[in-house]
Amino acid sequence: MNMGGPDMAPQRSARPGPVLEVSDLQTHFFSFGGTRVVKAVDRVSFTLHEGETLGLVGESGSGKTTTCLSIVGLLPRAARIVGGSVVFEGEDLTRKSQRELRRIRGRRIAMILQDPMASLNPLFTIFRQVAEPAFFHQQLRGRSLRERVQHLLRAVRIPSPEWRMREYPHQMSGGMRQRIVGAIALAGGPSLVIADEPTTNLDVTIQAQYLDLLKDIQRETGVALIFVTHNLGIVAKMCDKVAVMYAGKLIERGPVRELFDDPKHPYTRALLGAVPKLGSKEPLYSIPGQPPNLANLPAGCSFHPRCPEAVPRCVSEEPGDFHLGDGTVARCWLVEGKNEAGAHRGRTRS
């Protein structure tokens, strides 16, 4: 399939480094005048290169969405980035003003939201909504803007775009709307697209089509993709790397193959064990206990109350990152000393 023309590809110079490097990111929610602090994102680090896809997985409330919103700088009023950095194409986004961030959002970083039924403005035509990023960022007008929109709609496989673009969101199906949200994401020619559970509200068949579409677009444009999901099947299909979040922390990250074949953290193992298997007669495994209250986390490793393999040290001391030989990084005392890559020692904090 021809995604058409060089203008679809983001204008980026050959940069050797990663597209995105998040290090030690900490985002906290403050409530009751700052007396109550919820560490929604706690020392999260990962890197992402051009053309790569990172799957961000975890239970609801584990901090996936807050991590994404921290990257684009659109946190809710009560939340603030209190530490760490988000280096995007060499620039630290946490140090940028809202004005500077606005020039990056929609142009160099785009985001696809969860609910396609709610993420389009009901009162504006498809044309207007898809055209906006190009209108405001690239100053396109008139015919070139119209052609650009048709081109984008064609890229996300909307049939007869010159006709469809005059319609309103309520005249489209859910799958179509989500593809239009995809077209909006591509409109600025971004080098990073964050997709926050983009298929949870779609039918299974439409889901598969949508994922194929994203893959195709990525192949054409070389865009880096962060894929937030709790569907491990999608991670296996879509991603190069996985990062597993639990209670605001990234407890394990690494290449998909290694992480699926040999999960290091007991939580990752439990998560993989909780995936239903076709034909299996055994009852579905579920992780015992409840996700912890982020405002009142247990001491030591946050997972220890639910961990079947916890040792006494887990209760008192919080593990740091242990970099392992196969490229994975795990935050668990059990992997300490096990095949650890020599150069990086796990940082311990108590």
């Binding site: 961030l101 929609g106 389009l120 409109a187």
Partner: peptide, 25 residues
């Protein structure tokens, strides 16, 4: 609403987000 979030994600100026996307609704 989500569409206002998306409008902000497009990097639109606040005036456009508030006066056009939000107020009309």
């Amino acid at each position: 609403s989500e569409y206002i979030k998306l409008a902000r994600l497009k990097g639109l100026p606040d005036v456009v987000v508030i006066a056009m996307h939000a107020f009309k609704n």
